[in-house]
Structure formats: C-alpha cells, structure tokens
C-alpha cells in the first residue's frame, strides 16, 4: 500500500538525517539523566535528614517513594516537551529545508508523510524515556513495576500528545511560528499537571484547570500503576478520560491538518519560510 510505504520511507529518511547530526544523540542520552536529578536532590533536601517531610509527602501523594514520584512527573513532562517540539515542527522543518513542496507534489498521502517523520521523533523520545527509567532504577533504586496496563497508558498518552503535536504542526503552517505556542502549552503543563507535587496542594481553581489537561491523567496513572501497583479497577476513571483525550486530540489534529493544508494552498504560503 502506498500510504504504508510512504510512512516507512519518511521515517527512514528522518532517521538517516538524524544520524548525520551526531550531537543530537548526546543530548538524547545526557538530558534525561541530568534533568530529573536536580529536582531529586531538591526533594531530598526538603524531606529533611530524618525524612520527616517525606512522611507528610507520602500522605498527600499516596506514595512514600517521592523520588519515583518526582521522576515520573519530570520524565513524562520532558517527553511531552520533545514530542510537541518535534512533531509540531515537522512541517516547519520541511519548509525551512525547502523540501515541503517537493513532498507535497507527490501523490503520497500527506498525513502518512507527517506520521512517518513523527515516528522517528517518537522513537528518539522513547529512547530518552527508556534511558531515564533505566538510570532511575540503577541510581535511585526506584521500584517501578511494568505491566501491560502501564504500557497501554503510555500508548494512550503518546496518542494524545501526538494529536496535540498535529494540532501544533497545522497551526504552524499558518502562523509560521511555533515557539510561543509550545512555550505556553509546556508552561501550562509544567505548572498544572503536578509534575513534582501532587495536584491536591494547588488552590481549587488550579486543580480545575489540571483536570482539563491530558498530561495530568498520564502522570497520575503511571504513578498509580507503576509505583503504587494499582490495577485497572482502581484507575478506570482516569484511564477512560485519557482514552477520550487521545481519541479527540488525534481526531481534532487530523481535521485541523486537512483544513490548514487547504487554507495554506489557498493563501499560497506553503513555500514561504
């Protein structure tokens, strides 16, 4: 099938181009180790030498493993960050390279091309997550239990974030500027989704905002399933909310992409930098 072929070809193309910028590889391995570590030490300091702060924390967060708690939050957030940047910038990158039009004049499905280069971004950010987790296990002895449910939650989160990336990518086609939008969204997620603290410590209105963000549910589910050993029955509510986010964001992203592509052809801005 043409679409599948175009998808794999684009993924391979992006992988080849990446491999020719080796500095990216270093960043991919180093960043996930450095990033969470500094917060972990801050958390340890707050807990105090006798870990009295840790007990209070356990009460609020539902787990005494605050390093694991913080770690999962940060890993998920930086993962979201990379995916948003990279998927959001897919079309922009092609515009800058000057290759968008040569792709667009082929009969291949434009969405297949989008998803293809998204796959490579996805894989690279998954490697980042994996490195973080391995490091976290070795260095901080966090007891993370892997289960099919955890995998499923991760997959749903991926779909939701990918949908968001698609929305960004489509908007970028029109406004040709990504930074402020991504910065806004990641700032929102950083403050509201409970990355290093349980959302119950926030004022009420902020908790309401948090409930409207998919990452809140991703982080909560992964913490509950991976750290506290919860099963499907304990988390089914959050699970289905995340599911709904994933479906609607993907569908929204898809429709917006088709729409923006049409508008871009009408306005004549495909080839502009």
């Amino acid at each position: 099938m043409n679409n599948v072929r175009a998808f794999w070809a684009t993924a391979k193309r992006e992988l080849l181009i990446r491999c020719r910028y080796p500095d990216w590889f270093v960043a991919m391995l180093l960043w996930p180790i450095l990033m969470p570590t500094f917060t972990v030490f801050a958390t340890q300091a707050l807990a105090g030498p006798d870990n009295s702060g840790g007990e209070v924390f356990a009460e609020l967060a539902g787990t005494s493993d605050y390093i694991g708690f913080v770690f999962i939050g940060i890993v998920m957030w930086s993962w979201l960050n990379t995916v948003l940047w990279q998927v959001g910038a897919t079309l922009r990158t092609e515009q800058r390279r000057g290759t968008l039009e040569s792709n667009w004049v082929t009969p291949a499905s434009r969405l297949a091309i989008m998803f293809g280069s998204g796959l490579t971004n996805m894989i690279s950010s998954l490697i980042t997550v994996a490195v973080s987790l391995i490091f976290c296990k070795l260095m901080w002895h966090i007891d993370l239990t892997f289960s099919p449910l955890l995998g499923l939650v991760f997959l749903l989160s991926t779909a939701a974030i990918y949908g968001l990336g698609l929305i960004f990518a489509s908007l970028v086609l029109l406004v040709r500027e990504l930074n402020s939008a991504v910065n806004f969204v990641r700032g929102m997620f950083m403050v509201f989704c409970g990355i290093t603290y349980p959302i119950s410590v926030m004022p009420h209105w902020m908790q309401t905002v948090a409930k409207g963000l998919p990452l809140t549910y991703s982080i909560r589910l992964i913490r509950e399933i991976g750290l506290a050993g919860a099963g499907y029955r304990d988390v089914s509510d959050a699970f289905w909310i995340l599911f709904a986010f994933a479906v609607s964001l993907l569908a929204g992203g898809y429709m917006l992409f088709i729409l923006m592509d049409r508008i871009a052809a009408r306005k004549g801005i495909l080839g502009q930098y």
Binding site: R5, A6, W8, A9, R13, L16, T106, A108, I113
Partner: peptide
C-alpha cells in the same frame, strides 16, 4: 541525504 537516498525516498512517495 545522498543522491541515491533522495531518489529512494521519493520513489516511495511516487509509489
């Protein structure tokens, strides 16, 4: 990409 890789990529898009 190399010249050949470019052509391989676009050959896939042109099916």
């Amino acid at each position: 990409l190399t010249g050949r890789e470019n052509l391989e990529y676009f050959a896939a898009l042109y099916d």
